[in-house]
Simulated scan of single mutants.
Amino acid sequence: MPEWVVNAMPWGDRWSIDYTKRRVTPAPLQVQWRSESEIIKQTVEQARELKTFKVLSGWRNELYPILGHGNQGKDISVERSASVLFGIPTFGVHMTVYTKTQKGTMIWVPRRASTKQTYGGMLDNTVAGGLATGEKPFECLVREASEEASFSEQLVRSNAVPCGTTSHFHIRDSRAGGEVGLLQPQVEYVYDMEIGPHVKPKPNDTEVEDFYLWSVEEVRRVLVLGEFKPNCALVLLDFLIRHGEVTAENEADYVEIVSRIHRPLPFPTGPL
């Protein structure tokens, strides 16, 4: 957590704060605070009421899990929009959907709606979404594929292939909405899905503006221009590397790229 976030957060007597060890800990010893999740909930709700942080104006009413060695089997959660204030790892599912044609591999690329709270109007992975508390990655993927791309459950369950993860440590800028400089470690569960030319994604909610079917060359060109949401760019790079489109022969920074999209995080990342 940046020091300015620690200084601004309305901790009250719900937390134990150790400035020497740079540690903040829920203190659920008082009867009125029933659990760590309740302490976190009341703290961020107060911060929202006080308008302490701009990032909380994008309140989602969704819970993200907080993983830790000391959880002792308990599910501890935080409001999605507040997770970045605590610098905890967040988890998502990302799927690249592609079609093989006579021209080569073609990738379905969506454009985020301009009204999105974060990274509005930028390019995305075909299907992507955050992993809520208690949700398993593949079930999250099935849900997001229906909501964002109108893919049927049967299609996804029969054709989506798990391909590992990407991990990175992101420093948020103005495109993310809210305060800049917030620290956001992320893990993305990565999937590929090949579909035939007769299958086409289409928006099923307000989060996606449109879908484009682009060649690998077009995707690489737009990646260089920085038009993709940052974590989605990493997932696409991972796809291109795994499919032999980006290699040590055609990319001078190949080893650096591979290592940076699989960065070890100094935080608990499992089990979910």
Rank of each mutant, 00 (worst) to 15 (best):
Gln154Leu: 12
Glu209Tyr: 06
Leu223Arg: 06
Arg221Gln: 10
Phe169Lys: 13
Met193Lys: 02
Arg221Met: 11
Thr206Lys: 15
Ala145His: 00
Glu139Arg: 12
Val199Leu: 13
His170Met: 14
Leu223Asn: 05
His168Gly: 11
Glu179Tyr: 03
Asp205Trp: 06
Asp205Thr: 14
Leu183Ile: 15
Ala149Glu: 00
Gln154Glu: 14
Thr165Cys: 10
Ile171His: 10
Val190Glu: 06
Leu141Ser: 09
Phe169Leu: 09
Glu139Tyr: 12
Pro185Asn: 10
Val190Tyr: 03
Leu183Met: 13
Glu147Met: 07
Leu213Ile: 13
Val219Trp: 00
Phe211Met: 08
Glu217Ile: 12
Gly196Met: 08
Gln154Gly: 04
Lys202Ser: 15
Pro201His: 11
Met193Thr: 04
Gly164Phe: 01
Tyr191Gln: 05
Glu144Gln: 12
Thr166Leu: 00
Pro203Thr: 11
Gly177Arg: 09
Leu182Glu: 01
Asn204Arg: 10
Asn204Trp: 02
His198Lys: 15
Ala160Arg: 03
Ser150Glu: 00
Glu188Val: 15
Pro162Ser: 03
Pro203Glu: 07
Leu225Gln: 15
Arg143Lys: 09
Val208Gly: 00
Phe151Lys: 02
Glu194Met: 07
Asn204Ser: 08
Gly178Met: 04
Val219Ile: 04
Glu144Ala: 03
Asn159Cys: 03
Val142Ser: 01
Glu217Val: 15
Glu207Pro: 04
Leu223Val: 10
Trp214Met: 13
Gln184Lys: 11
Asn204Met: 05
Leu183Gln: 13
Thr165Pro: 05
Pro203Arg: 12
Thr206Leu: 14
Ser152Val: 09
Asn159Trp: 01
Ser167Pro: 04
